[in-house]
Design a protein around this nucleic acid. Structure first.
Length: 567
RNA sequence: GGGCUCGUGGCUUAGCCAGGAUAUAGCGCCGGCCUUCUAAGCCGGACGUCCCGGGUUCGAAUCCCGGCGAGUCCGCCA
């Protein structure tokens, strides 16, 4: 119970006093119907439900229950009020003071939860046939933010990139490298895309060439050394470029797992054998197949030419992962919905832990869907270049006298932050369309607003004559509406993290970050800090600004966005 | 054709799974606020059949059924 956040402790107390109130009334209910509310810190609508059972007016019931509520001394509940049929609960002064105490000086531990367990999260895992485009990075941003949220919540997290180094498209690139010139002057992943696109054109024009790819696939499956080298070369070049792009965006993986390892170490063969032993597979038209009437689509796990498929290797990968963690998360594009359900279905039949699948819908271009193969995409590098260029203009406009190094650094931090925030703020099930105008519109991008609030807090702290110790601060002075509202927002932080970690919804942290910054800006407007009427009040407010700095830098960090001290 | 997802002011979007009190926020629009801690800010205003039609309920943006529209999947590709 001591591990719980201030907000959850408050909720516990509300539940307790409400349940206790039943003892002295005629009422009882299983569901207390406690919810967050715009009208109170927590509210209960349970009298609506009791109205029909007891044949009384809900407002009457609410009043009787509220009258029976006894708030213990030293409670986190400050007040209970009835509004219509609602019973509204408000936090106490103690709640506010404890929140400030917990936040002040908390540094990077702020908001940390106490969840336990080892989680492997897989994200991005784009095929090594070109650079990341603006659709792939939705995967990266969601995955990386989720990883940060899970770490904050207390889990031990390992982030993996599953490298599809045996697939058909790698074969195509390897084949293409023998026929077309590789542009050594370009970033490697972009140069790979060039030959891949050209190869696909050629293969489309002359379908007879496809058998060359097929035979390459057979050789790699059989472990032909020369072919392994050719495939590895492609994979390395592409992944090298991809990780450079990811690093630009503050996205990092702990491990790159190559699917080929599961073929070479025999895991795929043993998996197929095991599926056979358990009677899960049938031979259909020479291909080893898991019948799946429930999906209206059978799952082929070995081609008639004996080669394995992506899903076969993926099954082996998941079996391997399952032994190394307590929970797995896969971040996948909507096109993987069916295949990932089928994968889970096989794992379940096999008795292997299933991954939790986080699906995000597609990012398309105004002219239609993106395709690496057809060369129809906007690369992440291109977007980052443009947004940093735009950000530099914005910084220069506002800080014309600052030196170039400062402006470049802020432009980078603001640019990357803008891209990340713009992606993560939208819930994953929403399909989006990329367009340059809105992607580069700094008036509508959310991250700079939050970063600016943090910089503002830093600026005030910098100018403060001295930053008081917690013990020096008279917390009872921070009781204006804006101050109270802000402290309540501070108290929500770990609750928001925990909810986001449990529901695997990074966007709720993005929304909270904006609300936190908004709330701090209100305080800034209404409560002069450095020019406060007296020193005690000034120090108390500096203390609150310090809390803002801690909270904002932490929430930005969870979002993978830099928190500049000045901008 | 079947499966899955989405449909909220001009545009983008929260809330929907666990139904409740005036539907969230941003952009854009209109009007204010810098000799005052960073105006990448703040305040005020206009703008809504929560896609449509039924149903369940004291109560539906939220749940159920049926439509309509958009996206996506339905390869021995990944």
């Amino acid at each position: 119970m001591t591990d719980e956040t201030m907000f959850l402790k408050f909720k516990d107390e509300v539940e307790t006093v409400l349940a206790d109130a039943f003892d002295s009334t005629e009422y009882s209910a299983d569901d207390l119907r406690i919810e967050e509310s715009a009208h109170a810190d927590l509210a209960s609508s349970l009298s609506f439900g009791l109205a029909s059972t007891y044949r009384q007016n809900p407002a009457t019931i609410a009043n009787r229950i509220a009258d029976a509520i006894i708030i213990p001394a030293d409670s986190l509940i400050g007040d209970v009020q009835v509004a219509g049929a609602y019973i509204n609960f408000f936090v106490s002064k103690k709640f506010l003071e404890c929140t400030i105490r917990e936040t002040f000086g908390a540094k990077e531990s702020y908001g940390a939860g106490h969840r336990e367990g080892r989680v492997i999260i897989e994200h991005t895992s784009a095929n090594p046939n070109g650079p990341l485009h603006v659709g792939h990075i939705r995967n990266s941003v969601i995955g990386d933010t989720l990883a940060r949220i899970l770490k904050k919540a207390g889990y031990e997290v390992e982030v993996q990139y599953y490298v599809n180094d045996m697939g058909r498209q790698v074969a195509i690139v390897a084949w293409a490298l023998d026929r077309f010139e590789f542009d050594g002057g370009k970033k490697t992943d972009h140069a790979i895309a060039d030959v891949y696109i050209r190869a696909n054109q050629e293969l489309g024009e002359d379908p007879d060439l496809v058998c060359e790819i097929d035979s390459m696939m057979q050789e790699i499956e059989l472990g032909d050394e020369g072919m392994i080298d050719r495939f590895s070369r492609v994979t390395l070049l592409a992944i090298d470029g991809i990780t450079t792009t990811l690093a630009r965006m503050n996205v990092h993986h702990d491990q790159f797992v190559h699917e080929s390892q599961f073929v070479r170490n025999g895991d795929v063969a043993s998996l197929l054998q095991e599926l056979d032993h358990r009677g899960l597979v049938e031979m259909i038209d020479g291909a080893l197949t898991v019948p799946m009437p429930e999906f209206d689509k059978d799952l082929v796990v070995r081609r008639s030419d004996q080669t394995s498929l992506y899903v076969t290797r993926d099954l082996a990968y998941h079996r391997w992962k399952a032994e190394r963690c307590d929970s797995m998360i896969d971040v996948l594009g909507a096109d993987h919905k069916l295949i990932s359900s089928q994968l889970c279905h096989v794992l379940a039949a096999y008795g292997v832990m299933e991954p939790k699948i986080v699906i995000f819908e597609f990012v398309s271009l105004p002219e239609g869907s993106m395709s690496t193969r057809a060369g129809k995409f906007i690369s992440a590098d291109e977007l980052l270049d443009q947004i940093e260029k735009q950000a530099l203009q914005e910084v220069t406009k506002r800080r014309p006298d600052a030196d170039a190094g400062f402006r470049d650094r802020v432009a980078r931090e603001v640019g990357v932050g803008a891209v990340r925030y713009d992606i993560v703020k939208v819930s994953p099930e929403k399909a989006t369309t990329f367009d340059w105008e809105s992607a580069l519109d700094f008036d509508k991008l959310g991250a700079p607003f939050i970063q600016y609030s943090h910089a503002r807090a830093c600026s005030i702290i910098r100018k403060a004559p001295h930053v008081p110790e917690l013990a020096e601060i008279d917390l009872s002075l921070l009781m204006s509406d804006a101050e109270i509202a802000f402290v309540k927002q501070l108290a929500r932080f770990s609750f928001v993290i925990d909810t986001a970690a449990t529901e695997l919804k990074p966007h709720i942290v993005a929304i909270y970050a904006r609300e936190l910054a908004e709330s701090f800006n209100q305080f800034y407007r209404l409560s002069p800090v450095l020019t406060a009427p007296d020193e005690l009040l000034r120090d108390a407010r500096i203390g609150l600004v310090e809390c803002a700095r801690v909270a904002l830098s932490n929430v930005l960090d969870v979002l993978g966005i830099a928190a500049p001290e000045s901008m």
